[in-house]
Amino acid sequence: MAYVPQDLLDRITALEREVRELRGRAQIRPAMNQILHGDTVIGEGGRLLVQDPDGDAIFETGQSPAGDWSVTMRRDTGAPAIGVGANTYPGDSAVNQMVRIFNRAGDVIVMDDYYADGYLGRPYVPVPVTPGVDVTSSTERTTHIGILHVQHRVVHATTSVYAPAGTTISMRYQLQLSGGVLAYEQIGNTFTVVGGAAGQELTNTQRIPIDRAHSERCRLMVRATRTAGSGTGTVFPFGLWGVNTATPEEA
């Protein structure tokens, strides 16, 4: 029998032991519930989905079917709760990247403006005004005034005007100019009510875009005058609200 050096046998024994250890470790499934170092990257159209047992995506992020990159959190019913991007709401443009918060019925209760970047869309914010004021003069006067902290790009204004028999009442809206100066410009259209033989009350609603920066503080006034007759008219602002834009032109 040929002579085999003892140290060579020891080396072979050690190698066999290491092979057995490696084989055993290869059968151990590594932990998949931790990422301790480095980034996890999802790209090229991929998405990360967290689903409930029914298959509803409770959390998802990645490229949406509209082509943008979105983030959506849903309730376990599948109804959206919070979302950024077109994947949140059917029919969205991938360009606008809106942020939305939904109630449990699926209605949007908080959002930024779809067309006007930098403005609030919802909730609507009221402009405080005083109750109805009588109009008894042919000299135009301020019947109502409110401080507008600009959050929206559009003011939704509803005002009722009463003109008694034989009397005509006109009203309009004015907004303080930028820069804090006490000068004003008309916004929206003048509304005129002719009392006729028996008098009448009519209501006017306007969507009025306002060219003011977000968070700017300015005065919004209702101005009215009696343009014909001698009766006493009344101006009732039913509601002045900041609202979201409805068309690109309003932005």
Score class of each variant (00 low, 15 high):
Tyr3Phe: 10
Tyr3Gly: 05
Tyr3Met: 05
Val4Arg: 14
Gln6Leu: 11
Leu9His: 05
Leu15Trp: 06
Glu16Lys: 12
Val19His: 05
Arg20Trp: 02
Leu22Asp: 02
Arg25Val: 03
Ala26Ile: 11
Ile28Val: 15
His37Ile: 14
Gly38Gln: 14
Gly38Glu: 13
Glu44His: 12
Gly45Ala: 14
Gly46His: 08
Leu48Ala: 12
Leu49Phe: 15
Leu49Ile: 14
Pro65Leu: 12
Asp68Arg: 13
Ser70Thr: 13
Arg74Cys: 08
Thr77Gln: 01
Pro80Trp: 01
Ala81Val: 00
Gly83His: 05
Gly85Trp: 01
Tyr89Phe: 11
Pro90Glu: 08
Gly91Lys: 09
Gly91Gln: 11
Gln97Tyr: 08
Met98Asn: 14
Val99Glu: 03
Ile101Gln: 12
Asp107Gly: 03
Val108Arg: 07
Val108Tyr: 04
Ile109His: 08
Val110Pro: 04
Val110Trp: 12
Asp112Trp: 01
Ala116Glu: 01
Pro123Ile: 02
Pro128Arg: 01
Pro128Ala: 08
Val129Pro: 00
Ser138Ala: 15
Thr139Gln: 12
Thr143Phe: 09
Ile145Thr: 15
Leu148Gln: 04
Leu148Val: 04
Val155Arg: 11
Thr168His: 02
Met171Lys: 09
Met171Pro: 06
Gln174Lys: 15
Gly179Tyr: 04
Gly180Thr: 06
Gly180Asn: 07
Val181Arg: 14
Asn189Ile: 02
Phe191Leu: 00
Gly196His: 04
Leu202Glu: 12
Thr203Trp: 02
Ile208Tyr: 04
Arg217Gly: 07
Arg219Pro: 00
Arg219Gln: 12
Val222Pro: 00
Ala224Pro: 13
Thr225Asp: 06
Thr225Ser: 11
Arg226Gly: 02
Thr227Gly: 02
Ser230Asp: 04
Phe236Ala: 01
Phe236Lys: 03
Phe238Gln: 11
Gly239Phe: 10
Gly239Tyr: 05
Leu240Val: 08
Val243Phe: 01
Val243Thr: 13
